[in-house]
């Protein structure tokens, strides 16, 4: 465990709280992609299968896994019930089928081992790297976003971005290298780069998030 990883995990945790807070304070899920949330739930459910047999390995990991699965399920529940009037299927249209299919293909081609758990783990890593695309696509279509939504996206993107120095640290200091997670994590961070740039140049300077 190193500082980058803890900060990354905390950033992930904070992002979920910001999202729930956004829905509560605006009483709406406007601007949030249901498709992205469903993809994330798939990511957590396939990656954290080991929660059933590694519960004693690390209380930190196990509790974080539970929080990620439950809070994402709760977010989806809220979006489909309490706040469903703000759902806009006309805007949230990204072809998620291709993302799931592509992640599935990569998982079958490059798992560490050919076991159900390892293939699903690899699938979850690849799917996570692109799970934000429906959300970013939606943002592009609307051309603007509420500030609190951009804080959510920043915190979520920072999670994987902070894992990159964590992987470098582990590689140099612990001789530990995880090529699948590292390559997928770099792709994921690159997908966020445009968003990070606009967040930095606009939102952090007190301006509204608007696409040029």
């Amino acid at each position: 465990m190193n500082l980058f990883r803890i900060l990354g995990d905390l950033s992930h945790l904070v992002s979920i709280f910001i999202l729930l807070q956004k829905m509560r304070s605006t009483r709406s899920c406007a601007g949030i992609s249901l498709r992205t949330q469903i993809l994330y739930l798939m990511v957590y459910c396939t990656r954290y299968l080991d929660i059933f047999w590694t519960f004693n390995a690390s209380l930190y990991n196990s509790s974080m896994k539970l929080v990620f699965i439950l809070s994402t399920a709760y977010t989806i529940y809220l979006m489909r019930t309490v706040y469903k009037t703000a759902l806009d299927p006309q805007i949230d249209t990204f072809a998620t089928y291709y993302l799931v299919g592509g992640a599935g293909l990569l998982a079958v081609l490059f798992p560490y081992k050919y076991t159900v758990y390892e293939v699903l783990w690899s699938f979850s890593i690849w799917l996570e790297s692109v799970a934000i695309l429906p959300q970013l696509f939606m943002l592009q279509r609307t051309g603007e976003a509420e500030t609190i939504t951009t804080h959510y996206l920043f915190a979520l993107g920072a999670y994987r971005a902070l894992y990159i120095p964590n992987w470098l640290y582990r590689w140099f200091l612990e001789g530990h290298f995880d090529p699948i997670a590292t390559v997928a994590g770099i792709i994921q961070t690159l997908l966020y780069s445009d968003f990070f740039y606009i967040y930095y140049t606009k939102v952090l300077k007190g301006k509204k998030f608007e696409l040029p």
Binding site: D9, M64, K65, F68, E118, N166, H176, D178, A181
Partner: peptide, 10 residues
């Protein structure tokens, strides 16, 4: 061993 160790991250 290597693959298992990889999964100690979230």
């Amino acid at each position: 061993k290597k693959a298992e160790k990889a999964h100690d991250e979230l």
